[in-house]
Amino acid sequence: MTNTLHRYGKAAGFEDDYILFAIPCKGKNDEEAVKRLKEFLEICARHHPVNMGNSTSGAYRPSQELHPTIHWSRNTKADYNGVIAAVEKIGTVAAVFSTRKKAEECLADLIEADLGLSINMSTSVEGAHRAAENCGIHRHSVEYSLGFLDPHDHLPNSQVLELSTMCGHGMVSFNLARKMLDMVREGRRTTDQAVATLARFCPCGVYNPERAKRLLEESRKRQA
């Protein structure tokens, strides 16, 4: 599944959304790839990502057997070390950045590290093109999102879509996104609490809490 390609929004709305991910190709560069996947994440962690993931868990994770006091004292912080430590199998690893500058600085270090893995950037067409140019490399291939065909009007409004499509696997449901929009608008949750809740459902760690925060803030102001 193309889990980062079809984020809903216009190019300008991806100014705070740059995803770098690494993927090995079986039979070509997958020998000892786990070590290099960890190295990829370690490099990314140095450049202040807003989320990171290893295909089975992100930096925001659900917890089991919580104590009832959790309803008043929930942790809303990201855990990057846990993501790195949990890389055990060959798969895709990813990091999300909220500025092109940070993504470019990280990319420059990744070029230097020469991991041999395929590295992709998912953002606006222009954003990735410029990042590649600024780092002195040429794009190899591009996969364009042509958006959604919805002739039967199944899809919800743009605010819900922007929030829910940040988990491309569809684990952030429309109903959950709607609920978080309402809770923030009504002052029942802070934006930090709401985005941590949304991000916990994304097991690949590609949900962008920083962008979600901006979208929630904007929607609150739009209501005012």
Binding site: L5, I137, H140
Partner: peptide, 16 residues
């Protein structure tokens, strides 16, 4: 309108 893309940056190579 192709606003968004996934861009392969061409850093992969055969290492096996």
């Amino acid at each position: 309108d192709s606003e968004r893309a996934k861009t392969n940056l061409g850093l992969g190579r055969v290492t096996n």
